[in-house]
Design a protein around this nucleic acid. Structure first.
Length: 870
RNA sequence: GGACGCUUAGCUCAGCUGGGAGAGCAACGGCCUUACAAGCCGUGGGUCGCAGGUUCAAUCCCUGCAGCGUCCACCA
């Protein structure tokens, strides 16, 4: 294998090849018979409708980091992928496509339509899978599932039948949210409320006895066609005398009673509320209390069904009715009103509340278990703030409408007998009514809410209801990674069903990550059409750079606004990794020498110590789901410490072959371990380089590095060397000294260790700071620029460049800053109450700090004194 | 109406149990130093939203206020 790397990183040269290599070697496969401890994740199955968006990219990057990290840590990992059939969403997409071809779902019929959806799924369902692969996802593709797979369909039936038999599923006529476009009922969660500028219309209903009129206020005049009463507050004196009378609805001439109900707010509008039990959830409740008739006036398509308005769209009818009332002189004021209106989360149309016969899950008992499991820590929600939302929702949970009047989905396993009218629920198809033996039976035409099947995902995908080795090994899963927008839709329901059917919470940790928003801070979504394709970013910058960016931005608790500059920065980091590796590979023999501890120099021990410290922080960060810390630890260590300092420090040893073996051994070792540490976040480039560095098969088969080095003495020495080099560079920088110009440096210190250090590191300092000699002295030369740290004062003679007065002013200013700092600490240290109450280690730290500042002040004063000499 | 989150350098944001204010980008100055100009060396820049409180000590904890954002909820 060639050890040469191209001068610039080009991800296209290796990313897809590396991925194919992993697939060929089956490195993503999780073995249920393995003796290793398990670490498993099930993917939040993306909808087959869409392509990968930024949310998916972040979501799957995080999962991939976890999977790859735990694999390196020695776990048997299994990341189970798949897709969701996404009932309404998919049906809508396919319908639109058909419409473009002049076809329609209703004309072609149910069976032909479903066939059409499957055809579409075969074509487009694969797109998102390929995108996940481009991202580098280490999914166990051999176990890919789809929520409409045969096995999963069986699981759904089992779920339905069990809940039904236990009385947890029932069928009832109830007020539901109806989408007139999708022509189906929706669950409460599927309704999205938006503020809308509207009008509050005041309309007069004449009293039937001719003694005047009652003025009601409504935003939906068209629903007057379904009014069953006018309600007033029982203690409202204005209307007390009217309770029990009737009013007559204009145009349609229907008489309805005036009733009293506490729900009415006296201050709102006129204090009179029209009650439409068939088209408003509150009115529905009032209707129940007063035994009112439920008069439907809008059909499933949103068309009016009553009187001369029959067949009109509900919004057209609204205007028509307003005009009618105006003509009759029954229209009062129209006041502007902002109120929230429910929209279908799929098609954005205004939801029509409607009474209809639907299937519901009685969720309270399931929710109770799900509450308990989180409270006792069987599932930990990270970050913890989401736990409140979860619990709050569970506490106030209401029955879940699970039937949908669409075609694409799991058909409800219930059969209605046309002979005796009974309904039979069964997990196998039935052809004869068990009650009357009639063969005239038909399966329920409704399908189930998509989330009813998604709720089983963590175990239906592993073979449930069978007891499989896969479940035995990998359930419960270790982590669920998702965004908060489906916390209720999915996470909560998985909790309920997992506990119900497996007796065990479906995941140990639920990590809720941020949402990636567009430049306006808007949530990206398919329906809004503001999605940026991550594939463009991958194509432009490579998957590794893209993933690293997402990782760096994935701090807990805040939404992410993605900018392309950030990705560019990550691309530069990948390039840095590439070039540092390239440099070291160029200077290596076929095999990297082993580290021989006795040959190590101080800087070798220094970088090994820094590496270990980084690894400890890194592991802690991954375990705590602090991915932004993961990124910054890697970035800082590799770029600032390894490349900028260590590699520069050892260049002489490499070029002059003086202690080269130990340097190369250390550099090779640190590079190798860094690559492994970086592999979970940047899998492609690390694999590519690692193979060339080690000559071994795959980075995925190695182990995560142990943090085992700690050389504190040598680390201090190099730290002070770096400090000195920085001081010298600082002076040179400030005076714009030509970088090529080599200068002598004078240094005052009384510290023997420092004197010793400058002697030992002389060649390094000479090279790194472009210094000819270091002269330890107690006086400064003329025309010298100076800088002081706590350890030493440094003087560089710069004839002609240095202005003595300016230099003096600079030093005095510096001294003033130091004095201010010093006063803060000495103030603290002279404070008795501080000394009495502060932790001893804090006091010690502050003392050290104070004395450090003091020493630096001395050095600055000394420099000022020395300046005065010329 | 409830709940939560955010407000830190010009921009985007870290700062997780109170004790050093930081990164990336941008800006400025200097460098083609034989891995990397997608780079190297250096510099400047912040009353940590406002007002109180607790504490020896507050960007961090508490209260109130302001602005922004999100979720939940039956606002005719």
């Amino acid at each position: 294998m060639s050890k040469e790397l191209a001068p610039r990183v080009n991800p296209k040269d290796y990313e897809s090849a590396v991925y194919q290599f992993w697939l060929d070697k089956r490195l993503f496969h999780g073995d249920e018979n393995s003796k290793k401890p398990a670490f498993s994740i099930v993917i939040p199955p993306p909808n087959i409708t869409g392509s990968l968006h930024m949310g998916h990219a972040l979501n799957n990057t995080i999962q991939d980091i976890l999977i790859r990290f735990y694999k390196l840590k020695g776990y048997e990992t299994m990341w189970l992928p798949g897709t969701d059939h996404a009932g309404i969403a998919t049906q809508n997409v396919v319908e639109k496509r058909l419409a473009a071809q002049g076809k329609s779902r209703l004309k072609m019929g149910r069976d032909a339509f479903i066939e059409e959806v499957w055809k579409w799924k075969k074509e487009s369902g694969g797109a998102i899978i390929n995108q996940l692969k481009a991202l580098g996802s280490a999914c166990d593709w051999e176990r890919e599932r789809f929520t409409m797979d045969e096995g999963l369909a069986g699981a759904v039936r089992k779920e339905f039948v069990t809940l039904y038999n236990e009385g947890l599923i029932y069928r009832a006529n109830y007020m539901v949210n109806w989408c007139v476009h999708c022509r189906t009922a929706l669950s409460d969660l599927e309704v999205e409320f938006e503020d809308k500028q509207d009008f509050l219309y005041n309309m007069r209903y004449p009293l039937s006895d001719g003694s005047g009129a009652l003025e009601i206020a409504t935003t939906r005049p068209e629903t007057y066609l379904g009014d069953a009463a006018v309600a007033v507050h029982p203690e409202d004196k204005r209307y007390a005398h009217l309770i029990g009378k009737t009013v007559t609805l204009p145009v349609i001439n229907r008489e309805i009673p005036v009733i009293a109900d506490k729900y009415v707010e006296r201050e709102f509008g006129t204090g009179c509320l029209k009650v439409t039990p068939a088209h408003d959830p509150n009115d529905f409740e009032i209707g129940k209390r007063h035994n009112l008739q439920e008069i439907s006036c809008v059909d499933e398509s949103g068309l009016i069904t009553v009187g001369e308005f029959k067949g009109l769209d509900r919004f057209t009818a609204r205007m028509r009715i307003i005009n009618c009332f105006k003509e009759l002189g029954l229209m009062g004021a129209e006041e502007p009103l902002t109120h929230s209106v429910g929209h279908c989360y799929r098609c954005r149309n205004v939801v029509e509340p409607m009474i209809s016969l639907q299937w519901f899950v009685r969720v309270k008992p399931l929710a109770d278990a799900a509450i308990k499991a989180v409270k006792d820590g069987r599932t930990k929600i990270v970050p913890k703030m989401w736990e409140n939302s979860y619990l709050e929702w569970m506490f106030n949970i209401r029955d879940w409408c699970i039937s949908r009047q669409i075609w694409w989905g799991h058909r409800i396993p219930a059969w209605h007998c046309k002979s005796c009218g009974n309904t039979t629920v069964s997990d196998t198809d039935i052809f004869v009514c068990p009650d009357c033996k009639s063969a005239n039976i038909e399966q329920e035409t409704d399908v189930l809410d998509t989330w009813f099947s998604s709720a089983l995902w963590p175990f239906s995908t592993m073979g449930w209801p069978e007891k499989t080795p896969l479940l035995e090994k990998f359930y419960p899963t270790n982590a669920l990674v998702t965004a908060f927008d489906i916390l209720f839709f999915w996470v909560a329901r998985m909790m309920m069903m997992g506990l119900k059917f497996m007796g065990e919470t479906p995941f140990r940790h639920a990590y809720i990550h941020a949402l990636i928003r567009d430049q306006h801070g808007q949530k990206m979504s398919k329906t809004k059409g503001n999605v940026i394709d991550p594939l463009i970013m991958i194509d432009k910058y490579g998957a590794d750079a893209f993933r690293f960016t997402l990782t760096a931005l994935a701090a807990q608790g805040r939404d992410i606004r993605l900018s392309e500059e950030r990705i560019e920065g990550s691309r530069n980091f990948v390039n840095k990794i590439w070039n540092a590796s390239r440099f070291l590979l160029m200077n290596m023999e076929e095999t990297v020498p082993q580290i021989n501890e006795s040959e190590l120099k101080d800087e070798d021990k220094w970088i090994l110590t820094k590496l270990s410290a980084m690894l400890i922080n890194l592991e802690k960060a991954i375990e705590g789901y602090e991915f932004n810390t993961v990124a910054s630890e890697l970035y800082h260590f590799f770029w600032m410490l390894f490349c900028d300092w260590y590699v520069e420090l050892i260049k002489d040893r490499i070029f002059k072959d003086d202690g080269k073996d130990a340097a190369i051994a250390t550099a090779g070792y640190v590079l190798e371990q860094s690559l492994v540490a970086m592999h979970p976040t940047m899998p492609f480039v690390t694999e590519h380089i690692w193979q060339r560095l080690t000559g071994k098969e795959s980075i995925m088969k190695t182990s995560f590095p142990e943090a085992k080095w700690e050389f504190s003495t040598e680390t201090k020495v190099i730290d002070s060397t770096i400090d000195l080099i920085s001081l010298i560079r600082n002076i040179r920088g400030e005076y714009n000294v030509n970088p090529g110009q080599i200068l002598p440096v004078y240094l005052t210190t009384d510290d023997d260790d420092i004197i010793k250090m400058t002697g030992e590191k002389l060649s390094i300092i000479r090279r790194m700071a472009k210094v000819s000699d270091i002269i330890v002295t107690d006086a400064a030369p003329d025309d010298a620029a100076s800088q002081a740290s706590a350890l030493y004062a440094v003087y560089i003679p710069l004839s002609g460049l240095v202005n003595a007065e300016a230099e003096l002013a600079k030093l005095k200013k510096e001294l003033a800053v130091l004095e201010k700092d010093y006063n803060i600490y000495s103030g603290k240290l002279n404070n008795e109450r501080y000394l009495a109450k502060a932790a001893p280690e804090i006091i010690a730290k502050d003392r050290a700090k104070a004395s450090g500042i003091e020493k630096q002040m001395e050095k600055v004063r000394e420099a000022i004194g020395n300046l005065g000499k010329y």
